[in-house]
Design a protein around this nucleic acid. Sequence first.
DNA 1: CGCCAGGCCGTGT
DNA 2: ACACGGCATGGC
Length: 222
Amino acid sequence: MPAHAPLRLYYERLLAAYGAQQWWPAETAFEVLVGAVLTQNTAWTSVERSIANLKAANALSLDALPALPEETLRTFIRPSGFMQRKAATLQALCLWLQQTYQGSLSSAAEQPTPLLRRQLLAIRGIGPETADSILLYALGHPVFVVDEYLRRVLTRHALAEANASYDALQTLAEQAFANDNASTHAAHYNEFHALIVETGKRHCRRRPSCDKCPLQEFLPEA
DNA sequence: CGCCAGGCCGTGT
DNA sequence: ACACGGCATGGC
């Protein structure tokens, strides 16, 4: 059995336990971009508050958001923390879309994944997880989104070292679906990441409670 | 009250 | 190439 095989089993177990998550929780692709930036090291409930502020001000669009004074934008996203950095990043992200793709997310989506990923990573405040979240959940490209919860799950199950690189964990997760038709990868990556977050929130925090985790039966020496 | 959240960046070794 | 502190606010 190849080393990555357990991950496919984890996926099936989580799907059976929690059902399809139907991610990303947003009404529009643009809202995905905003949420992906705001959720950096931040509880999702805090992000929801910020999104609500933007919606109430009718500012949650590619036209309206970058037109806001940065001071105003900071006020709206205050609940998500790191407001100075995140406000600048949101502005830069909008500017990139407008200047490179005439403000068209669907035009951007037609570009090759590596090009888009490089362009996103070149924006201050956008790292690998945020870039991949945008690629997968806003643009539909097949890239798996690695997060801290996946790192904890893999570490606790002795499938990866705690200091493994982002790229190594991403490859590990994507290999779980290597036998599936490539046209289904994006949908699987979408669900698997969402399920990892769900079980992570419930059971795999810094102080984990593995007793009710759907994956507990796979823990070494459990 | 203290710990933590769906990271990322600049700096120092 | 890594390790580490700072970034900000709100929930529990």
